[in-house]
Structure formats: structure tokens, C-alpha cells
């Protein structure tokens, strides 16, 4: 234990304390505390930014999902329309083909019957001509006056009956 109180030390240590405090504030904890505060703010800002980006991302995701949904619906409707159109077109084509066929058949039938009639008429004409020729031949050979008379009579009669 000291025999005397050395007041010089008291004054010196108090002065040193103040100097040390000021120096530390200026050079040590002052800047470091500032840096810590800055870092705190930085981190808070980063967290905010991250939160915002997350929300943005979610929003975009939702938008994209809706977009995809819409695109799918659209594709579905396009396919539906195409199918309907193609069905209708197919039916049209079939109906057209059927009517065409019908028309062709009718035409063919009409042609056939016309040809037939023509052929029949031609045949009749030829038969008539031929029978007249044959008749002429026969008549030239066998018909006598009397019998001719009789035949004419018959024809006339027949014609009279028909009229």
C-alpha cells in the first residue's frame, strides 16, 4: 500500500482517460459503429428488395400461369372450330358428291332411255321399210287383181275401225 497519495497519477489517469475516450471514438468505435449501422440498413434494404423481388416473381408466375391457361383455352377452341369446319366440309363434300352422282345417274338413265327410244324408232322404221320391201316383193310375185282388191278393202276397213 502506498504511503502517500500521488495526486499526479489521479490527474494523469483522468486526463488519459478523456484522451483515450476521444481517440477511440474518433478512430475506433465511431467508424465501426457507423459501419455496423450502415450494414444494418444495407441488410434491411436487401431484405426489402428480396421480398419485393419475390412478390414480383410470384406476380409474374401468376401472370404466366394465366397466360398459359388462356393459350390452352385458345388452342382448344381453335381445334374445336377446325374440327367443326372439317366435319361440315366433309358432309358438304359427301352431299355434293351424292347429288353429283344422282345427277350423273339421271343423265345416264335419260340418255339410255333416249337412245333406246331412238333405237326402237329406228328399228321400227327399218322394220316398216323392210316389211314394205318384203311385202312389195311378195305382192309383186303373188298378188293378183282380185286379191289386191280384197287386201285394200281390209286395210281400209281396219283403218276405219281404228279411227
Amino acid at each position: 500500500m502506498p504511503d502517500v497519495i500521488y495526486w499526479g497519477d489521479v490527474i494523469f489517469s483522468l486526463g488519459m482517460f478523456i484522451i483515450l475516450l476521444l481517440l477511440l471514438r474518433k478512430f475506433a468505435w465511431g467508424p465501426i459503429v457507423n459501419m455496423m449501422k450502415e450494414r444494418e440498413e444495407h441488410i434491411a434494404k436487401e431484405i426489402d428488395t428480396a421480398e419485393k423481388s419475390r412478390q414480383d416473381a410470384e406476380k409474374y408466375l401468376e401472370e404466366q400461369r394465366k397466360e398459359v391457361e388462356r393459350a390452352r383455352d385458345e388452342a382448344q377452341s381453335i381445334i374445336e372450330t377446325a374440327r367443326k369446319t372439317s366435319e361440315k366440309q366433309g358432309e358438304d363434300i359427301v352431299a355434293q358428291a351424292r347429288s353429283e352422282a344422282e345427277r350423273l345417274k339421271e343423265n345416264a338413265l335419260a340418255d339410255i332411255s333416249r337412245e333406246k327410244e331412238q333405237a326402237v324408232a329406228e328399228l321400227r322404221e327399218q322394220v316398216g321399210t323392210l316389211s314394205v320391201m318384203i311385202a312389195t316383193k311378195i305382192i309383186e310375185k303373188e298378188l293378183d287383181e282380185k286379191e289386191q282388191e280384197k287386201l285394200i278393202e281390209e286395210y281400209i276397213q281396219e283403218a276405219g275401225e281404228r279411227l
Binding site: V4, F12, L20
Partner: peptide, 19 residues
């Protein structure tokens, strides 16, 4: 008004180290 030189020196040294 006395001073203890040892204290003065040691306080200065430790203050220097802290600084």
C-alpha cells in the same frame, strides 16, 4: 503533488495498446 512513474508509464502503455 507526487507522481508514481510506474503507474504513469503503465497506464500510457495500456492506453496505447487499447488505442
Amino acid at each position: 503533488f507526487h507522481i508514481n512513474l510506474s503507474n504513469i508509464i503503465m497506464l500510457t502503455i495500456s492506453a496505447l495498446i487499447v488505442f
